[in-house]
Amino acid sequence: MYDEPDQPEPRPRSFPKADFNPDRQKTTRQGRRLQRIREEIERNRTEGPAIPTWILALALVVIVGGFAAIVIFSDG
Rank of each mutant, 00 (worst) to 15 (best):
P5E: 00
D6I: 06
D6G: 01
D6H: 04
Q7Y: 10
Q7T: 14
Q7F: 13
P8C: 04
E9Y: 04
E9A: 05
P10V: 04
P10C: 02
P10S: 08
P12Y: 04
P12I: 06
S14K: 11
F15Y: 15
P16F: 06
P16E: 11
P16Q: 10
K17V: 03
K17T: 05
K17I: 00
K17Q: 07
A18N: 05
A18T: 10
A18M: 12
D19N: 12
D19R: 06
F20L: 11
F20Y: 12
N21H: 03
N21C: 02
D23S: 11
D23M: 06
D23A: 14
R24E: 01
R24G: 03
R24L: 04
Q25T: 05
K26M: 06
K26E: 09
K26H: 10
T27F: 06
T27L: 07
T27V: 06
T28H: 00
T28W: 01
T28S: 14
T28A: 07
R29T: 10
R29H: 07
R29I: 13
R29A: 13
Q30S: 13
Q30P: 03
G31M: 08
G31H: 01
R32W: 01
R32L: 07
L34Y: 09
L34D: 10
L34R: 11
Q35D: 11
R36G: 00
I37E: 09
R38W: 07
R38S: 12
E39K: 15
E39N: 11
E40V: 03
E40S: 05
I41Y: 08
E42P: 02
N44I: 06
N44P: 00
R45G: 14
T46K: 15
T46H: 11
T46W: 06
E47G: 04
E47P: 05
G48T: 00
P49Q: 09
I51Q: 14
T53Y: 04
T53F: 04
T53E: 11
W54S: 15
I55V: 13
I55H: 09
L56W: 07
L56R: 15
A57P: 02
L58F: 13
L60W: 07
V62D: 03
V62E: 05
I63Q: 06
V64A: 15
V64D: 00
G65L: 05
G66R: 06
G66L: 10
G66F: 08
G66V: 02
F67M: 13
A68P: 03
A68N: 04
A68S: 13
A69R: 04
A69Y: 12
V71D: 02
I72M: 07
